[in-house]
Amino acid sequence: MSTVLGEARSYRLSWFALIFAALGSCVLLLIVAPLLALVLSSSLGELSQAAADAEVTQSIRLTLAAALAATIVCTLAGVPLSYVLARRKFFGKTALLAIIDLPIIIPHSAAGIALLTVIGRRSLLGSVTGGLMGSAAGIAVAMAFVSVPFLINAAHAGFLAVPERLEKAARSLGASPWRVFFTISLPMAWRDILSGMVLMWARGISEFGAVIIIAYHPMTTPVMVFQRFNDYGLAHARSVAVLLIIICVAIFVIVRFLARRPTQEAQNA
């Protein structure tokens, strides 16, 4: 098979291939170099020390749990929305899709301030709940706000990839819309939904700007990295950061592995 970058078989170098490869490498380097340098610069001793630090482990647990809670709640509410967006045509749909992307665009510290006006002590909601500032629930709300677009967009794309004719055929066979959704649409889109959940969860874990405005304490790990850097310097911040990165990458890899698409041969083996 020949590719744009040249004959795959002969590997003949051309200026085209060379320049594209060089440019691509620059981007990869931008991503990989700091991460690799960070991991390599921290010693095992530093890491085990951080892992034994109750403050650190508690903060990591809080971060993972708050992001997970935000992801699960948003999945329950967001998947139906994604389905409607993929299936129905209605007035204002384009505007709605743009609104869903808003949290990606606006600065996250501004998002935190915006959230305060809704869930802060003096807000309407806050007067009922006593305000969510400085609570795990508040942290989860901040994480949800900034990360939910990733879930909705992935699920939306997943449902769009399910041919509508399959659903129609199922309806004509006597299945209710509920049954069609749970036996056809959802099973066919679950990989995209899961990958959206992973993205949302990861984005939630890494959130700093909105979270720090809602809650400096209890301290999420990104906030702790910032605080330790400020108070004790690079070395103290580094080990916490590395620990979080290792945990996130491990979970990311495991979920990706579980949700991999079976190949055609495996399906018919």
Partner: peptide, 28 residues
Amino acid sequence: PEARDFAVVYQDYALFPHLTVAANVAYG
């Protein structure tokens, strides 16, 4: 549609790709 009791067969057959042949036939 589900109350009409008319089954549709489409040009591309619209078989459910995540189900076996047996589960496809048993679907209705």
